[in-house]
Design a protein around this nucleic acid. Structure first.
Length: 277
DNA sequence: GGAAATGTTTACCG
DNA sequence: CCGGTAAACATTTC
């Protein structure tokens, strides 16, 4: 469950339940769990204390009391889970961490069905891990420069949907929130970005920020004390989706049927009446 | 059996 | 070199 709101939900859960714990053990259990660029194997973080858990866009990392950070990307299906005896064992466990704080001990696992996610051990520079250095700040970062992003987007000739998905211009938006933002801003996904007014792109940015903020809020409530519910199937925000996955359903604004068109390897969902090309 | 699924990186082309 | 597009990665589900 991996766009900004989902990653933020995971980050919050990790920050709440893992901060202050020392990593007593760390082991990779799958040959591809460790990113190739990782400076070391996972056991390099053993003995480190977790100071905080940070995020930029869809990248997240544990800040440790040493010069290395434990970085994670959830890919398409990555999850961090605190297993509990009264819950089913997590499947597809790719890495396992033992955490301790005083007498408290708990386990944290990284699970990933499709193995597009990864972990790595990296240095931070200006507080950001190497693998996320090229990722632009997301709209919730204090350094987010709305006008600069609008200017950058306005110069692109590619379809606006590709542009808002480009993590090097603005990070955090994935296929779901791209479709939702475009629907809210009443913009057809295939319009070249440079044909939109700066004002219209501003509307789109605000829509993206707002829809992700709303999703983060709902994500927070689906949380359960010792278990991070990052299961996409539970769909905490699914009931609020206006466009994504709504092919054939009435547009909540005008009633026209939502359409689905091919977009690269994926799909775009939009209202043919509200979002005119 | 085919298609599609929340993402990123790399290769390739103009 | 830049912008843009397509493919590759792997697994599961419908």
């Amino acid at each position: 469950m991996p766009e900004l709101p989902e990653v933020e939900t995971v980050r919050k859960g990790l920050a709440r339940f893992a901060t202050g714990f020392t990593i007593s053990s760390a082991q990779g259990l799958h040959p591809r769990v460790l990113k190739l660029a990782s400076l070391a194997a996972l056991d390099a973080v053993e003995g480190a204390r977790i100071k905080e858990v940070n995020r930029r866009g869809k990248f997240l990392w544990f800040v440790l009391d040493r010069d290395l950070a434990l970085v994670a990307h959830l890919g398409m299906s990555g999850q961090f889970l605190f297993p509990r005896k009264d819950r089913p064992e997590p499947g597809h466990v790719r890495a396992r961490f033992g955490l301790k704080k005083g007498l408290k001990r708990q386990e944290l696992v990284f699970s990933d069905q499709r193995t597009f996610g990864w972990l790595s051990v990296e240095e931070l520079s200006d507080g950001v891990p190497t693998s996320a250095a090229h990722i632009a700040v997301d709209p919730f970062d204090f350094a987010f420069d709305r006008e600069a992003v609008i200017a950058k987007m306005s110069s692109r000739k590619a379809a606006i949907k590709s542009v808002i998905l480009n993590q090097e211009i603005m990070s955090g938006v994935g296929n779901i929130y791209a479709d939702e933002s475009l629907w809210r801003a009443k913009i057809h996904p295939e319009i070249p970005a440079n044909e939109l007014s700066a004002k219209k792109i501003g509307v789109l940015l605000d829509a993206a920020t707002q829809v992700m903020a709303e999703a983060v809020e709902v994500g927070g409530t689906s949380f359960d004390a010792m278990y991070i519910n990052v299961n996409g199937e539970s769909g905490f925000f699914e009931t609020s989706l206006a466009a994504y996955g709504q092919e054939g359903e009435p547009c909540p604004r005008c009633g026209r049927q939502i359409r689905r068109i091919a977009f690269g390897n994926r799909s775009s969902h939009f209202c043919p009446k509200c979002q005119v090309r």
